[in-house]
Amino acid sequence: MAMILNEEQTMLRDAARNFLASRAPLSHLRELRDGGQEDGYCRKLWQEMADMGWAAIIIPEKWGGLDYGHTGLGLVLEECGRTLTPSPLISTALLGVNALLLSANEGVCSHWLPRIASGEKLLALAFEESSQHRPSTTTTSAQPQDGSYQINGCKQGIILGGSADAFVVSARTRRGENPDEGISLFLVAADAPGLTISTTELLDNHRGATIRMEDVRVDRSHKLGPLHGGWPILEQVLDRGRIGLASELLGIAQETFERTVEYLKERKQFGIPIGAFQALQHRAAILFGEIELCKSVVIKALQAMDEENPDTPILASLAKAKCGQVAELSTAEGIQMHGGIGMTD
């Protein structure tokens, strides 16, 4: 597949850009933050996004979705990165929906996906147990008990966990030789008895959550995918999540870079635009190239998902690592090259 966007994808991206520019520019995030809004995102805005089909981009048509593919969702995430717009796109439309789709649990999919597509329900993925990213070393346990499972354990670092109607939880159902053997996935309702949620406001005004589960009962119909076979599904969900995050990071890197280049042309010192100085020109030129690399790894990874390319895992790690590195570089260089104004809120 040629590494360029088709017409439908270009239209989706442009529509997303226009919508976000008018409804959720950067000031939207500041309003949420300064208004002390508890959810960390605007429910009304999410409903508008859902009405445009954003919650349902990768959901198949039979479950009320658009079936526009991973590239489509990636483009919308990239645009949201440009405006730093907080929404359940990542927690639900990306992570939650992929977990359900990959589990191939028809009952769960036919109940939840149409409700997610309409914007009515939200999901969150609960798989981290420490501050370090080690998804295979889960200690949360799920014991079979009269047709259901009893879950005990604690999960942290859950994106938008405080707003979720249900969690996709990874739990150990069997001890194996390898840490990644014997993990199963479950869909656990947020209001299940024994489940408590605490939320944290994060540096970027997003919301994280920790959940504690004490003897939480989950019906076996809510097991996602095969028993003991949750790990390969979780790995795929995480790869898709990495690529989605890389798209968002690409948006952040590009927006910062473009604003910085504009500033270099406007800001005058010593009687000339500071962009005429070679020291700054070279830094900008290097950054330009790094962003070109990011554009390539992101579109390749997005297309790999749509084509079910077996190289998707390595492309996912490449995209996430590269875009993470470059978004940091772009924002740090942006602050420095803006001088004093770069330090202001």
Binding site: V261, L264, K265, I272, P273, G275, A276, F277, Q278, L280, Q281, H282, A284, A285, I286, F288, G289
Partner: peptide, 17 residues
């Protein structure tokens, strides 16, 4: 490399000078 970066800065990014 420095000449190439000059070209990128001027011809692609449109920086002055």
């Amino acid at each position: 490399s420095e000449i190439q970066l000059n070209i990128v800065a001027k011809r692609i990014l449109g920086l002055p000078g």
